[in-house]
């Protein structure tokens, strides 16, 4: 039994005030175990991206708690929170993951550079990460020279170049064709087994969600149902 790597308890998130208030999340409970791959689905506007933003410490809850790797995000000062974003949590978005002015290799090495890792070691580790996602050629080219699927692989390499407890992915296959998208999600699904990373994937596509250990369904800012997980449920249990 492992403690959850991500835990949301009765999380509420509102935007705006008074008559224009929007309740993006309305009491979400969710626990993700280490090395668990969870897919989140639901209609547009049901709060999926907001959930990821809160899980990654990009935004604050209105009420409730978010714990990442055993730490309550609400208790962290700005510096610790920035450190958490740099080291514990990785992101992959639908597009624009990579800086166009850096080469593929430099993009992947960026998190290491920010951590003060030396040039030589950073380069070696970045090459390893790129090899792990199957990108081994033309690494001194710029992101534009790569196909959409290759760019997402490079973004994933950047997310795993630092050892992460958790990777948050918001429709990473949203801009790709079915076969390419599937191979990117297949790659994501291999990360828990290879690196022990937990993954929360937001997707509209049932076929992509089917790679996950558990699929969570949201509607109007709450979790309405979920499939049984195929990995051992953490001590806190899968919130229902």
């Amino acid at each position: 039994m492992n403690d959850p790597v991500l835990e949301l308890v009765d999380v509420v998130k509102t935007f705006g005030k008074g008559s224009t208030e929007v309740r993006a999340l309305n009491g979400v409970d969710l626990a993700v175990s280490p090395a668990e791959f969870v897919a989140v689905m639901g209609p547009s506007g049901c709060g999926k991206s907001t959930l990821l933003h809160l899980a990654g410490g990009l935004e604050d809850v209105s009420s409730g708690r978010v714990r990442v790797a055993g730490r309550d995000i609400g208790d962290l000062d700005l510096a610790s929170r920035a450190a958490l974003r740099r080291t514990d949590v990785g992101y992959v978005f639908q597009r624009l993951n990579l800086l166009p002015s850096l080469t593929a290799l430099e993009n992947v090495a960026l998190p290491l550079k920010l951590e003060g890792v030396g040039r030589r070691e950073a380069s070696a580790r970045s090459l390893d990460a790129l090899a792990a996602v199957g990108v081994t050629e033309q690494l001194s080219r710029y992101p534009d020279d790569f196909s959409g699927g290759q760019q997402q692989r490079i973004a994933i390499a950047r997310a795993i170049v630092v050892e992460r407890a958790l990777i948050l992915a918001d429709e990473p296959s949203g801009a790709l064709d079915t076969m390419t998208g599937d191979s990117v999600i297949e790659l994501l699904s291999s990360l828990p087994g290879r690196f022990g990373t937990a993954i929360v994937l937001v997707t509209h596509e049932p076929r992509f969600a089917s790679w996950a250990d558990r699929v969570v369904f949201m509607r109007d800012g709450v979790v309405v149902d979920q499939t049984a997980s195929t990995v051992p449920v953490s001590a806190a249990g899968a919130a229902t």
Binding site: P206, R207, A209, S210, V215, F217, D225, Q226, A228, T230
Partner: peptide, 10 residues
């Protein structure tokens, strides 16, 4: 039914 279908897909 959606959950059941997703379990089947998995």
């Amino acid at each position: 039914q959606r959950t059941v279908l997703h379990s089947m897909l998995q």
